[in-house]
Design a protein around this nucleic acid. Sequence first.
RNA 1: GGUGGAGUGGCCGAGAGGCGAGGCAGCGGCCUGCAAAGCCGUAUACGUGGGUUCGAAUCCCAUCUCCACCUCCA
Length: 474
Amino acid sequence: MTLRLYDTATRTEREFQPLTPGKASIYLCGPTVQSAPHVGHLRSAVAFDVLQRWLERSGYQVTLVRNVTDIDDKTLVKAAEAGWEWWAWALRYEREFQAAYAAVGVRPPAAEPRATGHIPEILAMIERLIDNGHAYEQGGSVYFDVRSFPGYGSLTRQALDDLSPAQDSPIESKRDVHDFALWKATKADEPETASWDSPWGRGRPGWHIECSAMAQRYLGDSFDIHGGGLDLRFPHHENEQAQSHAAGYGFAKLWMHSAWVTQSGAKMSKSLGNGLLVSEVLAQHEPAALRLALAAVHYRSMLEYSTSTLDEATAQWGRFQGFVTRASEKVGAPSAAEVSAAELPAAFVEAMDDDLGVPRALAVIHETVRAGNAALTAGDDQAAAATLLAARAMLDVLGLDPAAPEWATEKAGASTAAMAALDFLVKADIEARATARADKDWATADAIRDRLAGAGIVIADAADGARWSLASEA
RNA sequence: GGUGGAGUGGCCGAGAGGCGAGGCAGCGGCCUGCAAAGCCGUAUACGUGGGUUCGAAUCCCAUCUCCACCUCCA
């Protein structure tokens, strides 16, 4: 069985056949860094992080490029309102996005190009489009001529005459209302730093051209997969494709779009202002639980986010963590190399190969964990070791191996030294309680447990002695 | 108006013609001094109305409701 992915362009599942055997090139539309990241942004990032991990696990060498749109109308407006330089404003949020991605275990891309860092490439592509007869200059701005390109609308099956007019620039200056800006002439009220020299005078790039130019620069004329949120399909991706095709490039072979996060059925969105900020969520929940919640629903399905979403994910995460911890203590922890080399259960592979069927893959993990717990109870160390290895290998594909370094030290951000000191103190209480229990002095034993619980320390008795842990929730 | 998507048990969510994914919550049990964790068991589920079929949540027709894109949006 080989990997099949749903291609938005053809609306079919297609077998993944890379342009270069053994390699996979992916361009992912990253954030417009004009405000703080919300949960929805992370969903897209996690979905494509899982794609990358699965491709790598399947033997591909993956090059993933995720851009940063660091200049656009809103960035300029918001920065001006706040009295900031637009470039400082953009960088501030770029850092927030990076921190948010890292917090939920999204690995950094191979390249993270900024629009403003690729003005030469953008100008070159615009000139190429003008030379090809697919773009024209008008008053210092350059527009893409949609009527000149028969393939326009093919990605999203739009007929030009049925569309509402594009409104990214004054209609009267364009040949067709659907023409969109490749280059925007600078305006009087815009800062000098927000414009660059061009053959058509000072100006700045339009929204769509940066992706075409940067994809071409880093991934070449053609690449395997272009990804992004579902809402980017039109006009952004349609326009990107039109530009690149009109410029004579093969561009993306396959399009993948992740669905959004909804609340009470409605889309979470920057403009609606109903976005749950990542910073707010992570103040109350473990990052791994957030990642699990975001990954648990198939990437093309809406993810209904409610107050119980993170509670459920936390419970599941606790289950995974608990099993890995107990099993590792009993039979020893496999090395990272062993985990990444371990054979994956066939049902898991089948699910992942079927357009990244994470929900079904998670079901396999749960079944494995249940079998592992049963093996631990039965004292079957061999079975416990096998299930531990399989569970960690599968969780690793999802970026959720509890023993992986990114999740290891997250407990309340405590340092190893502080944890060791705490362990020393708690052990004394555990010993006192063990003595009380041996004397059947339940009142004293319970008092000790209650006192620790009040400090957020959970005691769990087991046949071979009590163990303690911090309560996972704030 | 154009394009696309969705309605599954208390909740979240897979599946896509025939053995009721999985999780969370609940209930019963085992274990435990009590708990926690774990394990076992536990559900007249597939928007509505027709139809096709030996058999439909899955196919066809009709219908209702919701959502999204066509402005910025992951």
